[in-house]
Write a protein that binds this DNA or RNA. Structure first.
Lengths: 300, 300
DNA sequence: TGATAGTATATTATATATAATGTACAATAC
DNA sequence: GTATTGTACATTATATATAATATACTATCA
């Protein structure tokens, strides 16, 4: 039996769920079109799913109707936990792992062919992923030449943090105009709790990047602007890529960051405009220093 | 004879130039490596060029050296004016023409296959171009579905102009800190002259988009920030795409724009901070209105 | 021995083919 | 007549193959 595609397997699992949820309420499956809509795939795929279900005797096509013969068992489901949903996801996971574990450093060259061989994709898939990823600004390429991680120097760090400052300062004022019933205040309150929790359990400091992202996301999403949002994604990705070369004083720096976060959140909740601006300014300065140190760490 | 690639033809032309410039000063061509460096191509390509030149008896390989036999004539050059340098350029030109002439409107769907057929490329080239172009934010796609021009509504226009305002206001203050010997002041002076020229020759109003781009570029490049620069490209592209649906009152609106530009440049040159900010604010408001009208023009 | 040319290999650019999936239309059932 | 299914075709996703180009290695010459 030739293996079914990921999409058909996934849709099959979801159809089994539908059968389970309605069993034994009904003995008939909905028509193709409504299944297609609820599964979010085309009718062709739905029909492949139905063929599959018929082949394992869960349903039976009786003329026009599709009769449910038996209740699905756990073993009827496909195990998709370790299946990449597509070749694109495969190369994405592979490549992001390379850069997040420091195997690709600024200035390094790499080839599409090599990535394809090592990730199990073909060069087309790799190249298309790289083109998409280059939007982030971490990689670049010249025609007929290999790809390269962009050089990381003080100028890069300065421009990145400057840009972040411009966007976040602007979002900050939008945030402080939000009415009291806006969900952002609940999120900030929750963030405050989570940060204090972190202070009491220093062994959980690996959660800090996640909290940092949530805080900056809360600030920037106040602008409700797709362009700002787009750049938030880029900046936060690039920052976290570069933070990985921190020297040995993480513990101390993490402590400082948490305190800066708490200071900023407190002032935001108090709607202290001037205080918030100063606190954010201060926090971004620290961030710039960390990036700089990271840049130097690389050079040594 | 099989046709030579664009790259080899171009490199051949440049090599002919080198021969002309040194003829009859020398009777020998430089070695492969230095030719490779001055042409910016690999040695393989250089050697293809040399084979070509030998086949038309312009040079002769005498052992290790390459003797120049005769002075090149105009007819020795390849005519590359109508040749696309690559398939990628082909699809780029084709696609940008489609959207700049209003054949693809917001909300329209289009397929890779169709573009490939009509542009003379294959689907891979088309798709890779579209992935790259999607960075601009004008097109989007869902997996296994066609591409679509993003919808253009008031929200989009507002977010675009808001974003532009944030970046340009920030750049403005950087600009006003520049010392008197910075080249930006000469460029602004030149822009002032060009705008006044335009006022006297209203028939040349088609130059306005170009002047508009130069002005905003001058402002934004003051920030000397790659991220701002990146977004300048996006914003100016998107604006000009959307301006094409202006209704019949272009003449009047153009006049207003020129006057706003002149006002802004004058205040910049006078280093009038408060005045510059107000003038830019005013100009961006007009820009937003134009975009809005354009959005409505589409809906009618 | 170092610079250069010749040659082999690696890599990107491009084309073509096939499988998977989506969409449109005709056929059929109710 | 409308809704649904069956079927054909269109399109995207992916793989493979070839041409063009870049790079690495080896041989040769001064």
């Amino acid at each position: 039996m030739s293996k079914l595609s990921y999409l058909v397997q996934k849709a099959t699992n979801e159809t089994l769920d539908i059968i389970v949820n309605n069993y034994p309420g009904t003995k008939l499956l909905p028509n193709d079109l409504s299944l297609s809509k609820s599964l979010g795939v085309s009718r062709t795929t739905v029909r492949n799913v139905l063929d599959q279900l018929q082949s394992v005797d869960i349903i039976e096509k009786a003329g026009t109707a599709k009769k449910i013969l038996r209740k699905p068992r756990k073993t009827d489901y496909f195990d998709l936990r370790n299946e990449p949903s597509s070749k694109e996801e495969l190369i994405e996971t592979f490549f992001l792992d390379l850069i997040n574990t420091g195997k690709l450093l600024p200035g390094d060259m790499f080839s599409e062919l090599d990535l394809a061989k090592r990730s199990g994709c073909n060069t087309i898939t790799v190249r298309e992923f790289l083109i998409k990823f280059s939007r982030i600004g971490l990689i670049k390429k010249n025609p007929r030449a290999q790809w390269q991680m962009v050089e990381f120097d003080e100028k890069f760090a300065r421009e990145l943090v400057d840009f972040r400052r411009i966007l976040e300062m602007s979002s900050l004022s939008k945030l402080l105009e939000k009415t009291d019933d806006d969900p952002v205040w609940d999120e900030l309150q929750q963030l405050l709790t989570d940060h204090r929790e972190l202070l009491r359990n220093p062994e959980r400091f690996q959660d800090l990047p996640h909290l940092d992202r949530r805080l900056h996301l809360a600030i920037q999403s106040s602008a409700d602007n797709r362009f700002i949002r787009q750049f938030f994604d880029i900046v936060s990705f690039v920052c976290h890529y570069h933070y990985q070369w921190q020297k040995g004083d993480e513990q101390e720096r993490n402590m400082v960051a948490v305190e800066e976060h708490i200071d900023l959140i407190t002032k935001l909740l108090a709607k202290d405009i001037r205080g918030s601006i100063m606190s954010l300014e201060n926090h971004l300065n620290t961030s710039r220093k960390t990036l700089m140190r990271s840049a130097h760490g690389l050079l040594e």
